[in-house]
Amino acid sequence: MTGHTISRNRYFLIFAALIVLLVLTIFMAYVDLGPFNVIVAITIAIIKATLVILYFMHVRYSSRVTWVFVSAGFFWLLIMFTLTMSDIATRFTF
């Protein structure tokens, strides 16, 4: 927890990865993958968000209880998406 500092180079490395992923997501958007375009876009966005959370936000080096708090937010988001879409996606009319 405290005392664990990430080296400055690590931050620059993560930043470089984020920029590469940004360029990749723009590049992939110009390639016609049909329904997979949105899946690729979301996957890249999740990877970018994960990098920010783990390194810029130090969650990788945080306590277990911090992990629980972080996961809880996204877990509840997932519940909302899953339950709502299981309704919307199975309707014939909207």
Binding site: V65, T66, F69, V70, G73, F74, W76, L77, M80
Partner: peptide, 23 residues
């Protein structure tokens, strides 16, 4: 530790605030 947890509790509400719009 308490400060960090408090901030993450707030951010969890923020995730759901924006989550409603993403929904």
């Amino acid at each position: 530790e308490a400060g960090t947890l408090g901030m993450w509790a707030f951010l969890a509400t923020e995730i759901l605030f924006f989550g409603g719009m993403f929904m």
